[in-house]
Amino acid sequence: MRRRSLLIAAVPAGLVTLAACGDGTSGSGKTTAPASPSPSASAVPPPKLVDGPLPAITAGTKFGEKPTVAKGPGEPSKDVAVKTVIAGNGRTIAENDFVQANYLGQIWSTAKVFDNSYDRHTPLLIQLAQGTIIDGWRYALAGRKVGSRVEMAIPPTWGYGKEGNPQAGIKGTDTLVFVIDVVDSFNSRSSAQGKPVPQDDAALPKVGTNTDGKAPSITIPKADPPKKLVSEYVLEGDGPELKAEQSVLCQFEGKVWDSGKTFQETYGSGRLAQFALQQMEQTVKGLAQGLTGKKVGSRVLVVVPADLGYGDNPPSDGMIKKDSTLVFSVDILAAM
């Protein structure tokens, strides 16, 4: 089993999932991140950001390489020290964005590494949202650009507070040092950026190929729906293929074939969806199966027959019936 981060965050308010399709509420998936220790921890005032002091990066100095970081030089700052070690030229990160990044975290006074994503060979995916991650990350990463390596030193006030994080071996007096390689970022205006794939089957819905973050059009033919699961590229990305044990961050819209009505979507809502494919197997099995094996960066049309959808347990709003075929357009933004 792949080892996950020691630091697990709850689902931020900016997420929706399909576990409760049609009600627009947040779901129960998980995001891996340096979690906020308690809701009250985010009530502290914003820190002053200063240039140092910061310990030296002594090895692994290139973007994407696992760094080796020296012990903190003397006493740490009482403010949040942050420095862009390598400047990227990608999109500027804002609070509430999702950030995909590799990171290493260690304790200032001992140089003891308490967690890193480099050894897992999988970047973590976090949202810079209040109450979701430690405040030091929120303030120090906002305004940085994708492609940057950022080093920061975070005092307890903007880290884990007086309680620390015993699971990670962090005391309530420890200043934390992080080196973070920002791989990508996403927000509610993000779209898949793959190459258009011909949609030649007149018996299937046609999905728009716009990449401006707005909802693509979905035109459902006036015909009987297919009896078997359909999963087709609309835009084919060049990222890795989704595996059944992964979670996906996406934009999506779901329609009922017969009525053409939208029962849930993220476009225009200011939110993204994140869910584990294995969890989705318990709710809309066809959607999980239709996304498995598809490439990150793609827009996918998934047509789910009733027996692979909600079956005999449709949502209570009445829009989806027991025999409803569902049509999804899904932009696969990231996976972990």
Rank of each mutant, 00 (worst) to 15 (best):
L6C: 13
L6V: 12
L7F: 15
I8Y: 13
A9H: 12
G14H: 09
G14K: 10
L15K: 07
C21N: 09
G22C: 09
G24C: 06
T25Y: 00
S26M: 15
G29K: 03
T32N: 01
A35K: 14
S36Q: 11
A41K: 15
A41G: 12
S42P: 03
V50T: 07
P53S: 04
P53K: 01
L54I: 05
P55K: 11
I57N: 01
A59G: 02
G60A: 04
K62N: 09
P67F: 04
A70L: 08
K71Q: 14
G72D: 08
P73W: 00
G74L: 00
D79P: 04
K83L: 06
T84M: 05
N96P: 00
D97E: 06
D97C: 07
Q100R: 13
Y103H: 01
G105I: 08
Q106R: 14
K112E: 15
F114Q: 12
N116P: 02
Y118C: 04
T122G: 13
P123F: 11
L125D: 10
I126F: 10
I134K: 10
Y139N: 12
Y139Q: 14
A140N: 11
A142R: 08
A142Y: 04
R144T: 15
G147H: 03
S148Y: 03
R149C: 04
V150S: 07
V150C: 02
I154N: 11
G164D: 10
Q167C: 05
D174T: 09
V177N: 12
V177D: 05
V179E: 00
I180D: 02
S188E: 12
Q193T: 06
A202Y: 06
A202V: 08
L204T: 00
K206F: 00
G208V: 05
P216S: 06
I220N: 07
V230Y: 01
Y233A: 05
Y233H: 08
V234R: 05
G237Y: 04
L242I: 05
L242T: 00
S247V: 10
G254D: 06
V256W: 09
K261L: 01
Q264F: 02
G268E: 02
G270T: 11
L272T: 01
A273P: 00
A273D: 14
A276C: 08
G286N: 05
L287R: 09
G290F: 00
L291H: 04
G293H: 01
K295D: 08
K295I: 09
V302W: 02
A306G: 08
P314K: 09
G318I: 13
D323E: 12
V327Y: 05
V330T: 12
I332M: 04
A335C: 10
